[in-house]
Design a protein around this nucleic acid. Sequence first.
DNA 1: AGAATAGTGTCTGTCAGACAGTATCGC
DNA 2: GCGATACTGTCTGACAGACACTATTCT
Lengths: 222, 222
Amino acid sequence: MSDFRPLYPLVLVDTALLSVDDEGLKVLLVRRAEEPAIRKWAMPGGILRPHEDTSLEAAARRILRDKISVELPHLEEVCTASGPDRDPRGWSISVLFFALLPRDQVQAVVKSKVEAVEWANVANLGHRIAFDHEALLERAVGVLRDRVERSVLPLHLMPEHFTLTQLQRTCETVLGRPLDKSVFRRRLKRSSALIELDEFERGVQRPAQLFRATEGFSFFQG
Amino acid sequence: MSDFRPLYPLVLVDTALLSVDDEGLKVLLVRRAEEPAIRKWAMPGGILRPHEDTSLEAAARRILRDKISVELPHLEEVCTASGPDRDPRGWSISVLFFALLPRDQVQAVVKSKVEAVEWANVANLGHRIAFDHEALLERAVGVLRDRVERSVLPLHLMPEHFTLTQLQRTCETVLGRPLDKSVFRRRLKRSSALIELDEFERGVQRPAQLFRATEGFSFFQG
DNA sequence: AGAATAGTGTCTGTCAGACAGTATCGC
DNA sequence: GCGATACTGTCTGACAGACACTATTCT
């Protein structure tokens, strides 16, 4: 470890971009093209640019745009990590954000840009994660689980139209445990976060009614 | 506003040190002795020193030690604030921590050190708060309320020995609403966060039994 | 005895969990 | 009709809120 101790810390911004697919909860990882930790996988992140960015959140948005061509509506701070040894470049701070991507847009992200990008299964990452990003990811997933546990619906993970069963499956995937159907639906009826549509599914045994989230819903409402 | 845009942002650490007294929820404010915002009141904070501090939390600890001679066990991150305009010195990041001080130690803090220090009523601050510290304080109080709401006891606010009624009063002060006695006690019985002592109050109408927190309790447990 | 506060018992409404039952579709 | 999945109804136990009641100590 170098003993170089700069006057200013390195300020980094990382984003845990989460989604779900049939395998389970997923996180977007990027294979690093530069030192440090070159060729290792990490959550998309980069260095704050005070002359470009108007806030840390704006920096996270810029980096996502540049690295993986994604524009996200909902970005939220999770925590920070800091210290002299967590990045070989020296004393650093990472501010971690988390964001949710609708599951029907998962494919779109993977084929973008030059760097290698992969949706990794959160439950089974392998041991190739750079820096302390594995611990950071755990924090982000914890925040998500906590929200869903408190009966906040992960509507940001859903496509525009979806059935109640699909929403339930998503919650179950996030929480990692089965939910009772009637309990789930009872709560939805009271939540006012969902709007009933006149459309129905197609091409399945019994088509279910489609719903959408209320206009301008926030991740926070019940 | 200056157009000077440094390569590195200013990294600051602030702490919302909260306690309660008979008037209500209190926050420790320090009158700034230097520019910027000289003579205005702000939460105790300062600049990260990478060559001294091993983490942001350690920096917060150092600053509390230096400014107001307080050592705190429990320090926790709340959020960050960032941007080019929130501090006149330029692009800055503040990482906010929050901490709780037992109410029987409130007096000890006030008479320490050179700078003017004051426990301000959170509900009635006046309009003399520097920077964006008023908004930051709101976030910290929000975290505290949220914890207590979720039936996490604010044991860090209590003296070593306390009665159940005192604990209830503290919760009521934090939440700003009355709680039902029997409901409160029922929950405590299940919580296992409290240890029954053989001692009792003295010099009151009917002395109540004293309790203490379980050894090594965390703010997070129920 | 009476005031004050500690501590307990009980009723009621609400809601989660569990599970069975009914409805409606494709084949 | 049959299988599959959507959707609903109902029973039960746990718990919160409300409030009354008893107990113990000081004056």
